[in-house]
Simulated scan of single mutants.
Amino acid sequence: MTGLSYMVPFVAAGGLLLALGFLFGGADMANGWQALVTDYSPANLPGHDVMVDGELISFSRSGWMLYLGAVLFATGQMAMGFVVPALSGYIGYGLAGRPGIAPGFVGGAISVMVGAGFIGGLVTGLLAGVIAYWIQTWKVPRWLGSLMPVVIIPLLTSLIVGVLMYLLLGCPLGAIMEGLTSWLESMSGSSAVLLGIIIGLMMCFDLGGPVNKAAYLFGTAGLSAGTQGAYEIMAAVMISGMVPPIALSLATFLRSNLFTPAERENGKSAWLLGLSFVSEGAIPFAAADPFRVIPAMMAGGATAGAISMALGVQSQAPHGGVFVIFAYHPWWGMLIALAAGVVVSTAAVIALKQVAASPKAAVHS
């Protein structure tokens, strides 16, 4: 969780910059963004035809729009390049404190280099944290003690993690990551819908807890690869995560007598949190009545995830909810999936609360 919480800002900034890059420069800009950034400038703007690696490529846009889109996309790519190292580094930090950060970042960078991706980042972060913590338990002379956290521990831990990755773990983890990517790309029809249902259930199970964050990590992990399957998973993650706060806000408006005054007050702002993809907006409702609220939210999340995958909705942004509607394709598919999920969750939570009205709600209604 520590690694994920520190990783999310890199994902959010990088993903939104990538989406803005596509918005300004067009989808085909990704085919030559390096050349557009390095070979051109504000005083030398690109035209429609640009030489990329010795080949003349035509772009749909030109001038400032194409150049600015490439700059935004390049900045997003740099931010996304830190995602796996940040995940690994702060997993190490969560386990061993400051001495685990550097080895974790080193291991994460090696994971990217050998193609192990976020799976390698998870493994190297755990390795760095455990090894650094173990070395901290060594009994050393007092004169050496001051050097341990800043020199000895990072040095030895980075050495061990690097050797393990290059000699033993890199190839197997890379093969696992490649297999996962191939599996995502091969999904279609019923298998894609099933994955959408699973994602929706996970996103709405604990509303920001470990299960929710695991699903979010699964969605964001593939964004840097830029594949269609990864974009579809990211869309399912974000759409299903928006459902609970919106549905509960709508339910408090439609049947306010089923909710306590505090829940009604929370409902006034929960819809905005939901539209912003902040699932935690539903936590006060779930904490007060988990056995009825959580199943209802999971039903809507599964519906939204399934419809999103069935319609092939893609999201190039990892956060932002409906406020990054330009990053969805097709955008209308996102609205349909979200609306369906909200309707199912709203109807379900009202029905479940009517079966046995909450005593607190009854007293305060």
Rank of each mutant, 00 (worst) to 15 (best):
G3E: 10
G3A: 10
Y6H: 15
A13N: 04
L18Q: 04
L23V: 06
F24V: 11
G25H: 11
A27D: 14
M29K: 03
W33Y: 15
T38F: 08
D39I: 06
N44K: 04
D49P: 05
G54R: 09
L56A: 14
R61W: 06
G63K: 05
A79H: 12
G94T: 05
G94R: 02
L95G: 07
P99R: 02
A102S: 14
I110D: 06
G129N: 00
Y133S: 13
W134T: 13
W138D: 06
P149I: 05
V150I: 14
I152W: 00
I153S: 01
P154F: 06
L155H: 05
I160W: 06
L164W: 07
M165K: 01
L168P: 12
G170E: 07
I176D: 04
W183G: 11
S190D: 13
A192R: 01
I198N: 06
P210S: 14
N212P: 05
Y216S: 14
F218V: 04
A225V: 09
Q228H: 13
A230I: 00
A235M: 08
A236N: 02
I239F: 01
I239G: 00
N257L: 10
F259G: 02
P261D: 15
E265T: 15
S276N: 10
A282R: 01
F285G: 00
A286E: 11
A287V: 09
F291T: 12
R292L: 03
I294S: 02
G301M: 11
A302Y: 02
A304K: 04
A306Y: 11
I307E: 07
A310C: 11
S315Y: 03
F323K: 08
A327N: 01
Y328W: 09
Y328E: 08
H329I: 03
H329P: 03
M334Y: 02
A337Q: 06
A337G: 13
V343M: 13
A348R: 03
V349N: 00
I350R: 07
Q354R: 13
Q354G: 07
A357C: 07
P359V: 08
A362V: 11
A362Q: 15
S365I: 01
